[in-house]
Write a protein that binds this DNA or RNA. Structure first.
Lengths: 228, 228
DNA sequence: GTCTATAGTCGGATAGAC
DNA sequence: GTCTATCCGACTATAGAC
């Protein structure tokens, strides 16, 4: 893939427009059935521009993945820094409530990321990559997701007393994360069962309340079990 | 869609072969980028057979959805009958452990359904339908999923004391179901974090143990909270 | 009922004008 | 750097032979 690295304002703007249109079209259609014609039209750019700036349709898809990884990394940088600070400095057992708070913070931040309407196509692309992973998933996982999930598991271990780095701890953390993901990945099921026609601010708040309750119940239950 | 209703053995066999091949190809590719050529080839049938038996590619996709709904309905019929029996006969409060058992049973049955290797493409199709729902989702939901989830929510209400039919109860149930779904819908994330290269019997057992523990912890926590 | 051949459409990529 | 025109392959659907 030979990506043009021009920095002229016009070129930069064209690239960005193509990237954003591509997120939308790839989100709605998947990498195979999305067409470069659709993307170019949505971005108000010429079809040939895709080949020029990104080498090929495939190059554009990978650039989209990189863009998504950047967005997620930026979004989570503050949370990750706070977690690292906590994990580095707090070897004692006093900071339980801070630990719980950080777990809640990072999980609910993830919920916001995937449920935010403006991110709908990003999360569509990511879930499709979970079903049929391509190089794009590797990129997003290694550059963004891995850092988040690794720290979440470490916090869960610290809080509950589950062994740090142990596979069982990873499964517990993954299962808990599943509660968050379900509201995006099984969104349609939720809508049909509740009769909602959308997840707006009111619905979002109800979901968040339930999630917060589940996180606290589960973690305190696990803690009682594994600390003794 | 004009579906041929021939009942000659050869015709029936051709239809079934096409259906099963279609599940595989639609699972791997999504309804747009899957091609009738691929499906016909995999089924060892002529391309024209698809138009003949199912009217069109779209007709085949809907037939696949119907086939999936049938499979799920058959799989869950016994559980659903047990649940209905329980809900009808046990108005008293004594049967708590039976209630919990049924919740666990139905949730873990769902886990088996989505994780079973032979069903991998069925669950791929279903998750894609959650992302971008088509008529196929309506069909599967109304004919199979709705019956399961409605009863699960009723059991959860019964066990925890949450109000039956209330939206909050539905959200609680959905969130809990999310734990199960995550092992299929975020499977790739799990594999990368654990280093597994597959979810085999050993991994499946570990997952099931964690899920059972979470179900019990969460439901008993909710019960303490809402029963008092 | 089953198949081959093909019509008609749309896809990604590119050559070459400006 | 940007765009138009076009090549060529792949797709669905169908007409018509057997």
């Amino acid at each position: 893939m030979s990506v043009n690295t021009t920095n002229t304002p016009r070129g930069e703007q064209a690239k960005l427009a193509l990237l954003e249109a591509a997120i939308e079209i790839f989100g709605l259609n998947g990498p195979n059935s999305a067409t470069t014609r659709q993307i170019a039209q949505r971005a108000d750019q010429n079809i040939a521009a895709i080949a020029y700036y990104f080498g090929s349709k495939d190059g554009l898809y990978l650039a989209v993945a990189q863009h998504i990884a950047d967005i997620i990394r930026d979004e989570f940088r503050p949370v990750i820094e706070e977690i690292d600070l906590f994990l580095a400095n707090s070897a004692d057992e006093r900071d339980e409530s801070r630990c719980l708070q950080l777990i809640e913070l990072s999980f609910l931040a993830y919920n916001e990321l995937v449920l935010k309407k403006s991110n709908i196509n990003i999360s569509r692309i990511m879930s499709r990559e979970q079903l049929i992973p391509t190089k794009a998933y590797t990129l997003i996982h290694e550059q963004a997701l891995s850092a988040i999930f690794t720290r979440q598991a470490r916090l869960v271990a610290r809080y509950t007393g589950l062994p740090d780095g142990h596979i069982n701890t990873l499964i517990h953390t993954h299962a808990l994360m599943g509660e968050i993901l379900s509201f995006r990945l099984a969104r349609e099921n939720l809508l049909r069962q509740t009769g909602w026609d959308n997840i707006g601010p009111k619905e979002y708040d109800m979901i968040n309340d339930v999630l917060r309750e589940h996180i606290r119940l589960l973690l305190s239950g696990l803690k009682q079990h594994y600390r003794n």
